[in-house]
Design a protein around this nucleic acid. Structure first.
Lengths: 338, 338
DNA sequence: TCTCGATATGGTACCGTTACCATATCGTTG
DNA sequence: CAACGATATGGTAACGGTACCATATCGAGA
């Protein structure tokens, strides 16, 4: 493996000059550039990033830590991050915490050891310990998708409360009065906010929210399946379901199909986030869409901004995107006609 | 950011001793260990991987270069790689070449700069230039999923020819005589092999393969959609379709649905690889299943073996897994009854 | 008692690159 | 013509670890 010194020797210049040519920094003559570039090609020289980063204290690498890498919402978000990062010359490392705070801390430690320049983090269980760990090493971090109450940190997320409010309002306007809310774990801000928006919409309409209609579980297909089964066994069966994410929607759909409950005739079903095009040949679900790609881009821009100005300590941004309600078939028609 | 020297000073030992404790190598007393570990915790010390790797010339990192990270076949394969790699204490870096030889070379260069210890590679377009680039730097590489003819390299792949042969045989046994083959780009070994298996099955049955029934396109949903539309416009419309991968199957399905062609009543449809559980609530497609997870594991084991023995030059393995035919509804019943 | 291997620890140099500082030439400007 | 900034290049010392070698003690076996 040739080093920069081998290149320098072959080109008849100092190592530092080779470094300048490679990084296109400082001064060098065009004649020198040619000789250096020739030597690089002849030797098949590839710079050693490790040494470069060790010396310059910059790895040009960002870390993206997600809670569920199989969920298309997060992969779309990841594409937004990736595009913004690579456009700025940064490499991205993905990791999947699987909604486990322990895995999350483990990854944060590994990534700190790798000296990543910055973090984009969807906090597992909305815990703050990982963020504090990162902060203690003065590494910039932007939190994605979820709020972290009482912490001065940049956050890019969506208006979950508002989205749930609108979806619930829609169901109410269609005549539904008994609506189940299938949400994620308590403590996860998106799950909490979606329940809150649901509650507010009911209260606005003068309906007292029945605690039994509010179910909490995992943000997975299995979670949705189980919660929907529970909902079907309630003394008063709901006429509509609000699912807190796409996987819960799918799981609920499966449970309903197995129980012979038709959507939307027997049960309206609305949720958050689409499934990717490859999985949905025929769009069916009424959803509150979150601009995942844009969220990823925006968060990365903020992080890169922090990196450039090295201003970690001062004021922090919270960017909240609105959700977009897409009405499709699964919400059904007005049930007052029944 | 405290360094190993800060830890050493605080613990009252030499840096080298701290290194020994951290890596649990060489000799040190239990008393020393305690003092060092205490100092590490007090300072919040995190070792710098860059410096470690620069000196030791090992990064404990493997690279996995795929052609389509959105395809569940490859993500399942990636999980197999990830599990095997992390069990052996290696970190994994994923990259997506998007079936572009240029992106592939770009990533290989970046990954070489990052000094990865080894490569797992699905060659884009089955090109060999990237493999040669890796080889020229004496970095071990295992090729996945696709054959690279005339190159002495470890390969882990599936018996595509055999799988296609069996699927075609199945269709023939159901009475089909006019079968379309929708495959991937020419030059991609899996796509070529699947056409070859299809051809052989027809010849075995005494059917002369009609060149017009053999369509080639992208290994994507769009590719499948377009090829299926072409197939429907052939002078003699086929009664069955063999799709070369899962995305082609989905795309073809969409084209058939739009054209009002019922599967399996009007058209049998079989393919390769499942969609992931989250997308397939009701399994429908008859497929040749490739053991993606096992393939990833096996390839990683071979790579780790090479890393341990540092024997790159000598004999190379080619591991070929069989496909498993899963008969479901999309292949339909025997059409001789019609 | 002497030797030797196991145990325990440290010093020094080096991995490959770049930050920082130094040096030198040359054209321009007052 | 002196002074100065732009251009061009190099030397040296890090960055934070570990490889390699050296040293020292101690108990066991010859």
């Amino acid at each position: 493996m040739p080093t920069i010194h081998d290149v320098a020797k072959r080109a008849g210049v100092g190592s530092i000059t080779v470094s300048r040519v490679i990084n296109n920094s400082g001064y060098f003559s065009s004649d020198t550039r040619d000789r250096v570039e020739k030597a690089i090609v002849e030797l098949g020289y590839v710079p050693n990033t490790l040494a470069r980063s060790l010396r310059s204290k910059r790895t040009n690498t960002l870390a993206l830590l997600l809670t569920d890498i199989t969920n298309p919402f997060f992969t779309t978000l990841a594409r937004g991050v990736e595009d913004a990062a690579s456009a700025a010359g940064y490499t991205l490392i993905f990791c999947n915490s699987d909604e486990s705070a322990i895995k999350e801390s483990t990854y944060v430690t590994i990534l700190l050891q790798k000296q990543v320049d910055g973090f984009l983090l969807v906090p597992a269980q909305s815990k703050t310990s990982a963020i504090e760990l990162i902060r203690s090493r003065d590494v910039p971090v932007v939190v994605l998708d979820r709020a972290v109450p009482g912490m001065a940190v940049d956050v890019v997320r969506c208006d979950s409360e508002g989205g749930a409010h609108q979806l619930t309002q829609l169901l109410i306007s269609l005549g539904h009065r008994c609506i189940a809310s299938l949400s994620g774990p308590e403590g996860v801000s998106t799950a909490d906010d979606r329940v809150a928006g649901y509650r507010r919409a009911l209260q606005d309409a003068g309906i007292t929210p029945d605690a039994g209609l509010i179910l909490r579980g995992e943000l997975t297909q299995d979670g949705g399946y189980q919660m929907a089964q529970q909902a079907l066994q309630l003394p008063q069966r709901p006429t509509a379901i609000l699912a807190a994410n796409n996987f819960i929607t799918i799981g609920a759909m499966r449970a309903l199909q197995e129980a012979g409950v038709q959507v939307p005739q027997d049960m309206a079903l609305v949720g958050f986030d689409d499934l990717p095009p490859a999985m949905v040949t025929f769009p069916f679900f009424t959803v509150a869409l979150q601009p995942a790609y844009e969220m990823g881009r925006k968060a990365t821009e903020i992080l890169l901004q922090r990196l450039k100005s090295r201003s970690i300590n001062n004021s922090h941004k919270e960017v909240i995107f609105p959700t977009q309600i897409i009405v499709r078939r699964s919400s059904g028609d007005s049930i007052s006609q029944r």
